Simulated scan of single mutants.
Amino acid sequence: MKKTRRRYDRDFKISVLAELEAGKPLAQIAREYGIHPSLPCRWKVELAENPEKAFMGNGNKYKDQAKIAELERLLGQAHAEIDLLKKAFAMTQKKVREERRKPMLRDDI
């Protein structure tokens, strides 16, 4: 079974580091958040080296939101098409029923 790599956003990393700075033990933080104990240490070094650019990430949050918006748009479009097809089918069925009810006219009588 393949594990997927977890990604943490900037706010999560900063909140973990804030708890670490407040004096909470590293092992306890790692257990609570389900992360490896070396991650907060790595994040701390990264934040110390360049606080402005630390944890910039690769923009996955924006990509996910854009993908969700696109899928919602497609879902709305599909619903509109389904409603249109239902109405067209109902009209067709109505015409078929009316044609069946009409008396058959013969030309040879």
Rank of each mutant, 00 (worst) to 15 (best):
R101E: 14
A22L: 02
I68T: 03
R100Q: 12
K24L: 08
E81I: 01
G76Y: 00
E49M: 14
E21M: 04
R73D: 07
L74A: 10
E98T: 08
R101Y: 11
L84Y: 06
A22N: 03
A22K: 00
D108I: 09
I109P: 07
L84F: 02
A30K: 00
Y8C: 00
L17G: 00
A80G: 05
E72Q: 06
K87Y: 03
M1W: 01
L84Q: 13
K86E: 10
K87N: 13
Q28T: 05
E81Q: 07
E49A: 14
D83M: 10
K86Q: 10
A88K: 15
R106L: 14
A88W: 06
T92G: 05
E49I: 10
A48K: 14
Q28E: 04
P51C: 03
Y33W: 07
K94V: 10
L84T: 12
R10E: 15
G34Q: 00
Q28L: 07
E46L: 14
G59I: 02
D108A: 08
P103Q: 03
R7N: 14
K86A: 08
L47Y: 10
A48F: 13
M91T: 15
A69P: 04
R106V: 11
W43S: 01
A54M: 10
M56W: 09
P37G: 04
A88S: 14
P51A: 08
R73C: 01
E46I: 11
Y62L: 15
L75Y: 05
A48Y: 09
D9K: 07
T4C: 07
R100T: 15
A48V: 12
T92R: 13
R6D: 07
N50I: 11
K44S: 06
D108R: 06
G23D: 02
V96S: 08
E32C: 01
D64W: 09
H36V: 05
A18C: 03
M1V: 07
D9H: 14
L20N: 02
P103H: 06
K53Y: 11
A90I: 01
C41I: 13
S38D: 11
L39V: 08
Y62G: 06
E70A: 09
A48T: 14
D108P: 00
E72K: 09
G59S: 00
K44H: 07
D11Q: 15
Y8L: 01
G57C: 05
R100L: 15
G76R: 01
K2D: 09
L85G: 02
Y62D: 08
G59P: 04
G23E: 02
M1F: 03
D107F: 11
L74F: 07
K63F: 05
A90F: 01
